[in-house]
Design a protein around this nucleic acid. Structure first.
Length: 434
RNA sequence: GGAGGGAUGACAGAGCGGCCGAAUGUACCGGUCUUGAAAACCGGCGUGGCGAAAGCCACCGUGGGUUCAAAUCCCACUCCCUCCGCCA
């Protein structure tokens, strides 16, 4: 949620900033006038309320001094005002809901540093990295044995069973088996271990209440993207960002505690409505996948350092896994609703012959904190909204693809990246199993 | 699932339907005293909205209701605690 006070004080700046992401000035003018209406209606209602309270106070005084004639008369007047007050209050409240709805619809102001652009074609590639690059080697050229899509090679190895997954939960719910399953587990454990030095490990609930989803901004807008368990008013989380952002909802944090850094490995659920058919072969796009998330609540001053740290950790994992990747600076038009700045990490996978998004690192400013009402206080000062930063490190279903495809050998076996071998009892190869 | 108890400011903990936005204690901030600290004493100390300010309004788990007037009465719900049952 953007800052309404800022919009009031400096509408031009807000308009200019949001125009970069395609929000029209008319939309903002609408909000501004709704806000004016709301405030004037509120003033009317509050004045009536003040009069009623004053009269009621006088009734009490009259009663105490046994002047019941005056008391009755005052009570009657107050009662008459009551009907007006109720109506005024309802009108004002409705106007307030209008304002809130308009406000909830608006995306965050992009960072001044975010590149211009309407859609993903305008994203800026900042850099690439690949194994051996630091020693002057060129981008890897891949052999024919690596040009095999994972849906073929993994099936051959017996580590991915999409048919059985579909039998259990429908299409796009993958079932990994044997070493395929173990590889997923290894990746999650590897990442959590890597982050545990500075980030508190959290294992949150996989489901969240409507109230929680709303405070993170996932509801009401994105409801078709999420799985719901209506009977219990629960939603399957699309990312650990949801529970982590809400952990300190409504609280005022002592500045000394910031930054608060957390990491969590959870399943993530996405309905991918409308995505069927495109880029969905194998496990390119699935309804359920595991992801390790990094998250920080921080002061505005700490935000840049936190952002850099999350990005560095995500990149660090990719380097440790020996996978070629690139970093994209998302343009204004491609930013998620809540983000001010986002860097995506994409890994190259030769079998499907494309870059796969495996991480998204975002700085949200106080946008999420305003809705979730998370603030901090530095000694004596008024509470201030925190900033939030988060990023995946990493989303495993696509890393899994990249490993299966990049590390495929001529005989069809897969070389296990060295950092993962401890999770395979030291084994180096992943072979066909029966 | 059954029975009972509870939910008030950072924490603890009062609060006959009417000067209660809320006693008191602790913590915290400022000051006096002190070489310094502690103690003692004095003062301050919730959040949000509107407003230039004075001030007004809202908030005592949540949502309704009764009343001229609700933290206080009524109803529903949520959460927590204790006991019983069931069970990874």
């Amino acid at each position: 949620m953007i800052d309404l006070v800022q919009l009031r004080r400096d509408p031009e700046t807000v308009k200019k900033s949001l125009a970069r992401r395609g929000v029209s000035a008319t939309t903002l003018d609408e909000l501004i006038s709704a806000d004016v209406t709301h405030r004037s209606l509120m003033l009317v209602a509050e004045n009536l309320r003040a009069q009623i309270k004053d009269l009621s106070r006088q009734v009490g005084e009259a009663r105490r001094s046994k002047d019941s004639a005056t008391a009755d008369e005052l009570a009657l007047r107050s009662r008459e005002l009551g009907d007006d007050e109720r109506r005024a209050h309802e009108t004002a409240e409705a106007a307030g809901i209008d304002v809130r709805n308009l406000l909830l619809d608006l995306p965050n102001l992009p960072s001044p540093d975010a590149p211009e652009g309407r859609d993903e074609t305008h994203n800026v590639e900042l850099r690439q990295w690949w194994p051996g690059m630091d020693d002057g080697q060129p981008f890897p050229s891949f052999g024919e044995h690596q040009r095999v899509a994972h849906w073929d090679s993994a099936k051959e190895l017996g580590i991915l069973d999409l048919e059985t997954g579909a039998k259990l939960a429908g299409s796009m719910f993958p079932l990994y088996r044997g070493d395929g399953s173990r590889l997923i587990r290894a990746l999650g454990a590897f990442a959590l271990n890597a982050h545990a030095d500075e980030y508190e490990e959290i294992r949150p609930p996989t489901f969240a209440l409507t109230e929680t989803m709303t405070s993170t901004g996932h509801l009401p807008k994105n409801s078709i993207e999420m799985y719901a368990i209506e009977r219990d008013d629960l939603w399957a989380i699309p990312t650990a960002e949801v529970p982590l952002t809400s952990m300190l909802r409504g609280e005022i944090i002592d500045e000394q505690r910031l930054p608060i850094k957390m990491t969590a490995l959870t399943a993530c659920f996405r309905r991918e409505a409308g995505a069927a058919g495109r880029d969905t072969r194998g496990v390119l796009r699935v309804h359920e996948f595991d992801k390790v998330e990094l998250f920080a609540y921080c002061t505005p001053e700490q935000a840049q350092a936190c952002f850099d740290d999350v990005l560095a950790r995500a990149e660090g994992l990719l380097r440790a896994l020996g996978l070629a990747y690139r970093v994209l600076d998302l343009c204004c038009g491609d930013l998620g609703t809540s983000a001010k700045r986002t860097f995506d990490l994409e890994v190259f996978s030769p079998g499907v012959d494309r870059w796969l998004e495996v991480s998204s690192v975002s700085w949200f400013g106080d946008f999420q904190a305003r809705r979730a009402n998370v603030r901090y206080r530095s000694s004596g000062a008024a509470p201030t909204l925190v900033h939030t930063v988060n990023g995946s490190a990493l989303a495993w279903s696509r890393i899994w693809i990249a490993i299966i495809e990049n590390y495929r050998n001529q005989d069809g076996s897969i070389t296990i990246p060295s950092v993962l071998r401890p999770f395979f009892n030291g084994r180096e190869l992943l072979r066909a199993q029966n």
